[in-house]
């Protein structure tokens, strides 16, 4: 049974509850915090939300989130133009950026293929990817879609789409997490880790 507060507060709780990972209790806590907070602090949050909706758009080259026509990565002249990493969502791009080991370009697909849900290539930015690759410069394409059925379907499709261009196409490795314990690894992951083993010494 939902508790009813004064109606503006009620509305705030309702919208907060729609945020991911926020349930009734958390929404209530956040709403009461904002109620008690100074006017400036509350306005800062409100303005930040408005700003994000008004100023953030899609990079016209790689479909990452951007403030201008192109995102910071596409504008950066020090990035290696011969490598391109293809990811599903902008979140995945950020995850790869955090590793600090990849210095090339990105392409954000904005989705995945799924035979069972009927999601085809026209629902991802595959056409744009192909155009970018055709315009030259890229020597290697790294397919970094998620290691699940949808991600795998997407990678298989892209690999064949790109094949006629004669570029090097690679898929990110599947295997054990660092700091993990072999004993507790599931057989699928462990099997893939064995398949993807590499030379030492």
């Amino acid at each position: 049974m939902a508790i009813r507060y004064a109606s503006p507060l009620n509305r705030l709780v309702d919208v907060l509850m729609r945020l991911p990972g926020v349930g009734a209790k958390t929404a209530q806590r956040l709403a009461f915090y904002l109620l008690k907070a100074s006017r400036e602090e509350a306005m800062k949050l409100a303005e930040a939300i408005v700003e994000v909706k008004e100023k953030i758009r899609m990079c016209e080259r790689c479909h990452n989130i951007a403030e201008e026509e192109q995102c910071v990565i596409c504008q950066d002249p020090t990035r290696d133009g011969s490598m391109m990493c293809v990811v599903e969502e902008a979140n995945d791009l950020l995850a790869i950026e955090r590793t600090g080991t990849f210095k090339g370009q990105y392409h954000v697909l904005q989705g995945t293929l799924s035979p069972i849900d009927g999601r085809g290539p026209d629902q991802i930015t595959a056409k744009e990817l192909l155009e970018r690759l055709r315009s030259g410069g890229v020597k290697e394409v790294i397919l970094a879609t998620n290691p699940n059925v949808e991600g795998e379907a997407t990678a298989l499709y892209l690999a064949r789409l790109i094949a006629p261009l004669g570029l090097r196409v690679t898929r990110i490795a599947l295997g054990l997490p660092v700091g993990g314990d072999l004993e507790y690894a599931d057989e699928v992951t462990l099997g893939r880790a064995l398949d993807g083993r590499r030379e030492m010494g």
């Binding site: 293929l113 035979p115 069972i116 059925v149 379907a153 298989l156 499709y157 064949r160 057989e187 099997g191």
Partner: peptide
Amino acid sequence: LCEPFHGLRTSLELLTAASEVV
């Protein structure tokens, strides 16, 4: 897990056929 059916993910055709089955 008994059978992970890895092989079903080696081509988009196979994956689609298996998707139709399930």
